[in-house]
Design a protein around this nucleic acid. Structure first.
Lengths: 346, 346
DNA sequence: GCCAGTTCGTAAATCGTTTTACCACGAACA
DNA sequence: TGTTCGTGGTAAAACGATTTACGAACTGGC
């Protein structure tokens, strides 16, 4: 092989700015000025550079340019689980935002495990992402060891709302709990089971708090029926089935997570009670399959598009001014009244 | 500002290998040898380098290292739509593979639009991804203008199976069509509508071909009822409703896509016919909500995990040996017999 | 015709890492 | 003692783009 250059094996590597410069009969600096244009270039040299770049199929090497410019135009996205529709929805929106703004996103999953999360974030830092969009595994994100003291600009999304050391953008989960419950109360229900997956995260506790607020406001505090299922559909199903083995059965269920929604439906089927004739249900989240499910589920849903759009712009602001005070955005939720919650039958 | 260095504003930038070298009293080359160890280093200098790196919280700059080494350890992932559960499933698996192998993935969406797809791929090329995993918008991927002549190593997944110029990994869609249909025939059905979204892609045409094969093998070719819906749930619903306005109604529906599955269910509801008593349905894909849907749907499902694992390793092989002959993998599908397809009632 | 000001091109420095080329120092051996 | 190795360290040259510093050529005003 008659290679003349040193360094790593180049095996027909792509043309460099130097190749373009040579072909256009100018210097690399001029080529750079034509292509990203911080300085004027005479029309004729501009033209010959354009032609040369075109002919060679020149694509600027992003590594080199990042190295020199000190930013990568890459955003790291950290989610617990990409196969969860809520998160894949967020990522879809973020990707669109990124494409628009000339960014790319590096996506990693934490499996909701703080150790894995730290490791994956470390990898993103080594890649010098310009910013981080994080749906954190724990509310105390960043306080545990394992993460370096200084992180790139980051915003916490969905989880860990109100964190002291980061911008946060999340749904108004208290309102979610309040509105879902109030809707059932307005329909005359007084025995409302509130089904949730865990009490380990603020976003879940907030929904329960909203439930309690609605109860209290209507003098129903004594009737609280909080049911903590677990993170799987069947765990939720089982605890709901237990509720129905008690003497005083609830007349309505408010599911505060997507999994518990599925668990509630499954339990209702197993118990052979009629939805919505004998039991009302307010579901959490909306999903395409619900349009073919009978009855069409009344639900409280998060606004993924607004969550994504707002967190993106908060992150951009944070990158632009790293020392601004932290922001805490709460995005309203949507209550969609459909068919699964009905006036209580007496 | 008493900055001494030129170049981009450094604003408390992270420590470099030179900082570590200075602190450890060795040269940068030695630090590099300690950290990635291609050459021996005496025990005492090794130790002091480790300590210095630890103390400074040194993280190697991936941009610089990529630039010098000539690879990025980054894989570009191109999918039509990340909020489609099938693709987000694939991406989830790929991300896990990547994390395992010390790679990261750069995810982009094409919206199934070839122009957007080209642009997004261009961006990935500028970032010098080491490889590409592509669920292409069109079967003739890469022949249309807009894409450079030389792409990085790429494998085509799910779509464009059997492409001449790329490795391909996809489900055995002919078998999918064949097995779904055969199952219904075995149950005694003779009027089976095959519902699909379009005939624009091989993977869809293959499923229909499997349907035809099964029909033919059972002397039912004359009874073919191919129904092409469209890419939305309601488009599929409408065409199925039309089928049922005809004198000779089908006794079974084989849905060959996820959307057409939803469309078929919706139509069945609207028409007020009982599933599975009056109509049998074989669905496509499996999804968590199906576990709470009644009747539990009999379905043909793709094996996302195998699709992802195989495409990943084919890509790794391709990167390792760029000139090997192309491979065409077909992954078997899974027929799950559940409750929505029943023996034909006479 | 001369001087100041503008425009535009180039050479060289720089980003932070890896890797090559070379050198110094011992140890082993004749 | 003189010659080879082997080991481990350093300086410097890459990687490919951006940007600064400088200088040549041109413009315009007097």
């Amino acid at each position: 092989m008659g290679r003349k250059r040193r360094g790593p094996p180049a095996s027909r590597s792509s043309p460099t700015i130097r190749d373009v410069a040579r072909r256009a009969g100018v210097s690399p600096g001029t080529v750079s000025n034509v292509l990203i244009g911080v300085r004027g270039v005479r029309a004729d040299s501009r033209l010959s550079v354009m032609k040369a770049a075109e002919a060679l199929g020149y694509k600027s090497n992003h590594m080199a340019s990042s190295l020199r410019r000190g930013h990568t135009r890459t955003i790291g996205v950290v989610v617990p689980d990409l196969s969860n529709e809520f998160f894949s929805g967020l990522v879809t929106h973020w990707e669109a935002q990124a494409a628009n703004a000339g960014y790319e996103i590096l996506v990693v999953s934490s499996g909701d495990n703080p150790d894995i999360e730290s490791r994956r974030i470390q990898a993103l830092i080594a890649r010098r992402v310009d910013g981080l969009l994080i749906a954190a595994a724990r509310d105390d994100f960043g306080t545990a060891p394992g993460l370096p003291v200084s992180l790139p600009p980051a915003v916490l999304v969905d989880r860990a709302s109100g964190h002291k050391r980061f911008d946060t953008v999340s749904s108004d989960n208290v309102a979610a709990g309040y509105e879902g419950t109030s809707h059932l109360i307005k329909l005359g229900h007084r025995d409302i089971a509130c089904l949730t997956s865990a009490d380990s995260h603020v976003h879940l506790r907030d929904r329960v708090q909203g439930y309690r607020m609605a109860l209290k406001e209507n003098g129903l505090s004594g009737r609280e029926r909080l049911v903590i299922g677990g993170r799987s559909v069947d765990a939720c199903r089982i605890v709901i089935e237990q509720q129905f083995r008690q003497a005083a059965r609830p007349t309505a269920i408010f599911a505060t997570t997507f999994f518990s929604t599925l668990g509630a439906i499954k339990a209702i089927h197993e118990l052979n009670i009629a939805l919505p004739q004998d039991i009302s249900l307010v579901a959490f989240e909306h999903s395409e399959w619900m349009t073919v499910f009978q009855p069409y589920l009344t639900s409280v849903a998060q606004r993924r598009d607004e969550l994504a759009a707002n967190s993106w712009s908060v992150l951009m602001d944070r990158i632009a001014s790293p020392h601004a005070t932290f922001r805490r955005l709460k995005i309203p939720i949507t209550l969609s009244i459909r068919e699964s919650a009905r006036p209580v039958s007496d």
